[in-house]
């Protein structure tokens, strides 16, 4: 009973928040609604017993990703209204619904056959975080390490792209050029 109430409440709230995100003309409203929607989605993870993912969702999405977007919005002119594409609305809505139904069919097609066996079944007597760790560090160790390398690459790429004067390389310059560059640093750049 309470599960049903929680599900419908959070389903309504998430849908409304994401609808605001895609329809508003104010970038700040979109950012705030998206952050709220992310937190409401973590509620689904808690309802489904995936406590670790719920915490990760709050920390990574509402913490890191939203902070990054808010930081990025300092660079852009966010106060003016956002212009929209003026396509045929019926085509856009129809294509969206068809594509989404297709996704669910792709998800549900293997499940129609009833002989599904859990590949990594839930372990008895272990919490959700412990279960995830047991599977993650045995069967999924290589994807985990690859994901770590990918995050490192993304971090370096983010620093190089967003930083100032990243096209200069101090190791390839001689001393006179470095002194010149230091003098230039005191001037206003960007």
């Amino acid at each position: 009973m309470f599960e049903a109430i929680a599900f419908y409440l959070f389903a309504f709230l998430t849908t409304v928040m994401f609808f605001i995100t895609v329809t508003t003309t104010q970038a700040l409203h979109a950012l705030t609604a998206l952050a709220a929607g992310m937190i409401f989605i973590s509620a689904f993870f808690f309802i489904l017993g995936a406590d670790f993912l719920g915490a990760i969702q709050i920390v990574v999405y509402s913490g890191a990703v939203m902070a990054l977007y808010a930081f990025g919005m300092m660079f852009f002119d966010t106060t003016r209204d956002v212009k929209e594409k003026n396509g045929n609305k019926f085509i856009v809505f129809g294509l969206s619904i068809i594509a989404a139904v297709l996704i669910v069919v792709i998800f549900a097609a293997p499940m129609v056959s009833t002989n599904i066996v859990a590949l990594h079944p839930m372990i008895e007597g272990a919490g959700n975080t412990q279960e995830l760790g047991m599977v993650l560090f045995t069967k999924y160790l290589v994807p985990f390490e690859v994901a770590a390398v990918m995050l490192l690459v993304a971090m370096v790429a983010g620093i190089v792209l967003a930083g100032k004067k990243m096209d200069l390389s101090l190791t390839l310059m001689n001393d006179a050029e470095i002194i010149d560059a230091k003098k230039e640093q005191h001037k206003k750049v960007l």
Partner: peptide, 23 residues
């Protein structure tokens, strides 16, 4: 799954109608 479909449709509508790259 129905809720997931609904949110996916909303996201697709957003992808198709947004012109600003941040949004």
């Amino acid at each position: 799954l129905v809720l997931s479909t609904l949110l996916f449709a909303i996201g697709l509508i957003g992808v198709m109608r947004r012109k600003n790259l941040l949004l």
